[in-house]
Structure formats: structure tokens, C-alpha cells
Write a protein that binds this DNA or RNA. Structure first.
Lengths: 148, 148
DNA sequence: CAGTATCCCTCAAGATACTG
DNA sequence: CAGTATCTTGAGGGATACTG
């Protein structure tokens, strides 16, 4: 791209959105947060992304006010990432992409799951989606049915 | 990316979708086709993208069966690009991105339009969305209202 | 554990000239 | 007009070592 902020003056909403979340990793991080994932190491293992890239994307997502950091809910002194209201409103985007992919990018009967540990190759145990304020989110699968 | 096809074996539908249309230009091309744009030169002027990149993206979109080529509807001997059924089913994705962008990426009262000629800076005259089989598509703006 | 700091390399993207 | 061919650049991304 010519300049880092090149799309920010684009008059098209789609173009601006693509500029913010239209890279290889951002939306996948957001998707994982929707599925209850909150910590750096979990993102890293699940996505198989390099640590520096992950660090950079998380910063950009926080900067774009899609994610925000807060103290970990368990005892540890570490931080965790949660969706802001702006981030949660990306839900329809993720659902639309998921639906399109399911319908057009999979063979009949092919298995599709979401959270896989890139090292062990095993599914990551489901953590249960939790919203920023602690209330439960509707699981993605359920929402897919509803939208359809 | 490690290999060109790296995401094709991803078990997550969102990941595969992002791999197909998650670059800077593909979705913007598709958006323009939804708005009735069909020709190479129009894409080029509207998006300001380099010709070789545009050529490459159009090929990939045709290859992914999102667009297909057909003889131009006017007298000319040239081709034009139209959406396949698979391509048209990307509509919810484009709408979701547009809505999110409108709500979160624009100042109050800021003007947002879609088709701008990157050289003249003037809006491209609206061409009227036409589907693959010649029937009219619901304009994006209308759909936004309905979905909301 | 959650990052930061380096180094390196590939590829996406732009510019431009050329062709049918 | 609708591309193709060629060259160059810089950002995106990976690997790895290091730090609080």
C-alpha cells in the first residue's frame, strides 16, 4: 500500500472495513475471541502465527478499539483480550464469512471445526463465549441457523 | 504465507473464506460488480489499482468461480465480468462489512459513497446492479435498511 | 507466560512499456 | 480497450533469541 493510512479517507465503508480487518490474521483473532479465547499464548498456538506478528495485530486491534485489555479473570497477573462493543458488532461479518465458507469452500461431508492447536493438531477445548461484561454470547453455530 | 494453498486445508470456514477474498482488492472488486460494474477499465479507474494486479485478481476470482467472463452486452467485442451464483452469495458479507464500516468508521455526517474515479476524483455514474441472468439486484443501500 | 528485538526473505503491489 | 511483460520496492510475515 502507498501509505499506512491510505484507506482511511476512502469514501466507501467497505474499503475502510477491509483496511482495518482485511488482513490474514485480524479476523481470525476476532473469531477466536468470539469463541471465548482471550490469551496471547492461546491465539499463538491456535493460529500458528509468529509471535511478533500476533503482537502487532493485537496492538492494532486494540488501537482500532475492536479489542481491549483487562486483567486476567483467573488469579494470574497477566492480561487478557476482550471484545469491545465495536468488536462485538463484527459478529455479522464473521457469521457471513463462516456461512459462505461452509456453503462453498467445503466438500460434502467434510469436517469443519474452528479451534485447532497447530502444534498438536488437536482441537482446543471449547471455552465458552463470554462477552465483555461477562454475559454469555450466543454460540456462532446457533446464530448461523437463525440468520439462515 | 508459507505456501499459496496454505489455508485450503484449514478446518475453519472463516479461515478459508479469508484466504479466498481476504486481500486488499478482491472484495472491493466484488463490491463494484454488485454495483453494476463489469469492465476491466472501470475497475481500474475506480479502484486505482495497478493493471497487472487487477488482472491477477480477476483471474483468481474467475478461478474461484466467484466471477465469470462473458461477451460484452454492448456491441463491442470485449468481455465483461459477472457474478456467478457463488459470487452473489457473497452479498451478506459485503453488506455486513458495509454496515460495520458505516457505523464505526465514519464521523457523524461524513459523506460516504462507493464508486469514485481515482483520477478525476469524481463519482462514477451509477450503472444499476444487474445480476448474472439479467435480473435486477436489490441496491446495496436498500438492503442495508432491510437487514438492519 | 507474554511479549520484544532482530534478521531475513518472499511476495504483493506499483510503475511503466508493450501488444492484439 | 484489455490486457501482458518486466522491473523494482517495501511491507508482511516467519524464525529465533531474548527479557521482565
Amino acid at each position: 500500500m502507498p501509505s499506512p493510512e491510505s484507506m482511511n479517507d476512502e469514501p466507501c465503508p467497505v474499503a475502510r472495513s477491509v483496511d482495518v480487518i482485511g488482513d490474514r490474521w485480524s479476523l481470525l483473532i476476532v473469531r477466536n475471541v468470539f469463541d471465548g479465547m482471550r490469551r496471547f499464548g492461546d491465539f499463538q498456538r491456535s493460529l500458528g502465527v509468529a509471535r511478533n506478528i500476533l503482537s502487532d495485530r493485537l496492538k492494532k486491534l486494540v488501537n482500532a478499539e475492536i479489542l481491549e485489555m483487562r486483567n486476567a479473570s483467573d488469579g494470574t497477573a497477566y492480561q487478557e483480550y476482550v471484545l469491545t462493543a465495536k468488536g462485538e458488532s463484527l459478529f455479522p461479518v464473521v457469521v457471513a464469512l463462516r456461512q459462505w465458507g461452509e456453503q462453498h469452500l467445503f466438500e460434502a461431508g467434510e469436517r469443519h471445526s474452528i479451534l485447532i492447536d497447530k502444534h498438536t493438531g488437536k482441537p482446543v477445548p471449547f471455552m465458552g463465549p463470554i462477552s465483555e461484561d461477562g454475559t454469555a454470547l450466543v454460540p456462532a453455530e446457533t446464530e448461523v441457523q437463525k440468520v439462515k
